[in-house]
Design a protein around this nucleic acid. Structure first.
Lengths: 221, 221
DNA sequence: TTATATATTTAAGCATGCTTAAAGATATAT
DNA sequence: ATATATCTTTAAGCATGCTTAAATATATAA
């Protein structure tokens, strides 16, 4: 291939199937901020080129080749993010946008050199796993969104959504960083929000925010 | 702007004006490996957008804005080359191609962070000067191609052309590196080639090769 | 100076990746 | 089960950046 648009489609398709189980044109169009018609159009091309298994009105599937391609793009993206954050000191709310451009402009050789230079990081600055050269991804076992926790549960932040506009700068503002410990003080069922303890302060998180912060439970002592 | 093609046109135009004094569509088409018709087409667009001062059948001029843009692209390109070579260990015959892609995919912020990380290099791995943030370029005073040297002149390699296919890997093979000292043993007028002493060996360089290696004369002791 | 070669532009055409508007298919609610 | 809402596709159109072929301008040589 060698095509920014197509690469973005594949990555978006892969991520959504991974996170939600499936994706249909409507959602894909929303994610890519383009019209539904454009999606139909491109799906035909991706299908023609063997990356997507496209059947009218059905949810979108990747072929084996499409999936490999998408995972390689995720690898590129996340390695660039690590570089930007760790080596150049760019904040975690800026790296996504920058990596989005770089991922389309680097050879595999370059990515592998970067990977070596960074000493083979396993996760990006938001906690997302980095696929290895063969597309293998270390799935973390017991990661759940904050919304899944029960009252009095303690947990450690291990991943935050890097894909939602303005979310990261807000998360930073309330003290969310990878590794930070939190505790659920209360769950307000009527709006799905949760009251958490963080840095000894109590903060109420809307369900939308809470659903984008992923944690590992800490077993009670 | 934000356009790979247009950025490549501007860079090529700038480089040629800088090196040869002018550029016309025919040469530009050759440099970019596209048809003359495509060049005419694009010149109209670049002109419309205020980057080029285009007049039919005349040689191509950059506007002030076009020139700034081109110099910024050179800055990006060369900073990336330094990073690839110095930090990642990529050989100097590979960095150009890779930087060619990266230069179009990085914000000025990123480039400035890289510049800082690299401790403000002044030249790229081929010896080309790196424009600063304001587009200022340190012109080296007394640099000439090997073809300009006289018999028995000694000189130090300070720059090699990064733009000619396969030239760099050949240059590497015969021992040319930045800083390397050479001496002219003989000039063969009938074909323009020169016999040089390098690493205690005598090598004949065609005029084409010699014209792509730039040196500073060393004053006789 | 005129013929010829070379350079440049114009014209028509094509794939890409979008758009909007309209038509058609599917899903949801009553 | 049927009406309605939503989703998806089709159709037509547009800018971009190329192509080749033909027309025109400029440069070079005799």
């Amino acid at each position: 291939m060698n095509n920014i648009s197509q690469e973005n489609y594949l990555t978006a398709i892969y991520r959504n199937i991974d996170e939600v189980g499936e994706i249909k044109p409507n959602l894909l169009a929303a994610k890519l901020a383009i019209s539904n018609a454009a999606v139909t159009d491109m799906l035909r091309k991706l299908s023609r080129d063997g990356f997507v298994d496209y059947q009218k009105y059905k949810s979108i599937k990747l072929t084996h080749e499409g999936e490999s391609y998408a995972k390689n793009m995720l690898r590129r993206h996340r390695i660039w993010e690590v570089f930007l954050h760790q080596t150049l000191g760019m904040t975690w709310d800026k790296v996504h946008e920058e990596a989005e451009k770089l991922e389309h402009s680097s050879s595999d050789d370059l990515i592998n050199l970067l990977d070596e230079f960074l000493e083979y990081p396993e996760v990006d600055p938001h906690g997302y796993p980095i696929p290895d050269k063969n597309g293998k991804i270390k799935k973390s076992k017991s990661v759940v969104a904050i919304t899944e926790l029960g009252e009095n549960d303690s947990a450690k932040v291990v991943m935050v959504n890097d894909d939602v506009k303005n979310f990261l700068s807000y998360a930073t503002k309330i003290g969310i960083t990878l590794g930070k410990e939190i505790k659920i003080k209360d769950r307000l069922e009527y709006d799905g929000s949760v009251l958490i303890l963080i840095d000894k302060k109590e903060i109420n998180l809307s369900s939308k925010i809470a659903s984008n912060i992923f944690v590992e439970k800490i077993k009670p002592a």
